[in-house]
C-alpha cells in the first residue's frame, strides 16, 4: 500500500517537474528571441487582412504566362523522380540488412544517405545554384538529392520488412545473390517501391514550388517574382495554380495506387 502511494507521489512530482521545466523553457524562449506576445497576436489579424485584402481577387489576366512554369514543374518532378528512384534503388539494396553485400558498405552508405537527408533541401539547392548557375540544372539536381536521401531510406526499410521465408527457400535451392534478388526479394518489394515512388513524385511537385526561391526554376520562381514586385494579386493566382496542381497530382497518384496495389 505504502509503495503504491510512494509511486503515485513520485509520478506526481515528475509531472510537476516536467510542467515546471516546460514553463521555464517557454519563458526562456520568449525572452531569448525577444518575442513580443502583444505584437504577435496583433499581427495575426493584420496577416489575415493582408491575405484576404491584398491578395484578393486573384489576377487572372495572364494565365497563359504560367503554362510554362507549370510544365517545367511537372517535368522537373518526372525527371527527378525517375532518376532518384533508380539511384536510390541501388543504394537501398546495398544498405538494407538482408541484402547488403558487406556490413561496411551498409554502414558507409547509411551515413552518406543520412547526411544527404539531414542537410536541408534549400541548402543543397543554393549550393547547386552556385555550382551550375541559375536555371533548370541546379533544380533537377537538388530534387534528385532530396529524392535519394528520402527514397533510399524508405526503400531499404521496405526491403527489410519483407518475408524472410521466401528468401530462405530460394537460398536453400542454391540460388546466387542476383537470383535471390530477382526471385524472392524484388516481387515482394514491388508494391512498396511503387507506392514510395509515387509519393516521391508528390513531394517533388511541392518541393519545386520552393526551388524557385533560390533561382532554380519551376513555379516557385513566379511566386518570388510577383512578391518581389508587390503584385500580390498575381501571387494569389500562382499560389492557387500551385494548390490545384498539388491536389491534382495527389489525386492521380492515389488512383494509380488503388489500381496497382
Amino acid at each position: 500500500m505504502k509503495r503504491a502511494e510512494m509511486i503515485a507521489r513520485q509520478k506526481k512530482a515528475k509531472r510537476l517537474l516536467s510542467l515546471f521545466l516546460f514553463v521555464a523553457a517557454t519563458i526562456f524562449s520568449i525572452w531569448f528571441i525577444k518575442f513580443d506576445i502583444v505584437a504577435f497576436f496583433n499581427g495575426i489579424p493584420l496577416f489575415l487582412n493582408f491575405l484576404f485584402v491584398d491578395f484578393m481577387p486573384p489576377n487572372v489576366n495572364d494565365l497563359a504566362k504560367y503554362v510554362r512554369p507549370v510544365l517545367d514543374t511537372l517535368a522537373f518532378g518526372v525527371v527527378a523522380t525517375v532518376i532518384s528512384s533508380v539511384i536510390a534503388l541501388v543504394i537501398a539494396f546495398l544498405m538494407a540488412h538482408n541484402t547488403a553485400p558487406h556490413p561496411v558498405v551498409r554502414v558507409a552508405l547509411r551515413s552518406v544517405v543520412s547526411f544527404i537527408r539531414n542537410v536541408p533541401f534549400l541548402v543543397w539547392a543554393s549550393i547547386l545554384v552556385v555550382l551550375f548557375g541559375v536555371g533548370t540544372m541546379p533544380g533537377i539536381f537538388a530534387l534528385i538529392s532530396l529524392g535519394i536521401g528520402f527514397l533510399a531510406r524508405l526503400y531499404a526499410e521496405s526491403i527489410e520488412e519483407i518475408d524472410k521465408h521466401a528468401v530462405e527457400a530460394v537460398e536453400a535451392t542454391g540460388a546466387t545473390y542476383l537470383q535471390k534478388l530477382k526471385q524472392a526479394i524484388i516481387p515482394q518489394f514491388m508494391p512498396g517501391y511503387i507506392s514510395w515512388t509515387l509519393f516521391m513524385f508528390e513531394i517533388t511537385i511541392r518541393a519545386s514550388a520552393i526551388l524557385g526561391l533560390v533561382g532554380a526554376g519551376g513555379i516557385g520562381s513566379q511566386i518570388k517574382l510577383t512578391m518581389d514586385l508587390f503584385q500580390y494579386s498575381k501571387t494569389a493566382t500562382v499560389v492557387t495554380i500551385m494548390i490545384l496542381m498539388i491536389l491534382a497530382v495527389e489525386y492521380v497518384t492515389q488512383r494509380i495506387r488503388e489500381r496497382l496495389l
Binding site: G43, I210, L213, K224
Partner: peptide
Amino acid sequence: IPTTIWVLLAVAS
C-alpha cells in the same frame, strides 16, 4: 500550401 510559401507570406506581412 508548402511551409516555405507560408513563411514567405508571413515575412511579407
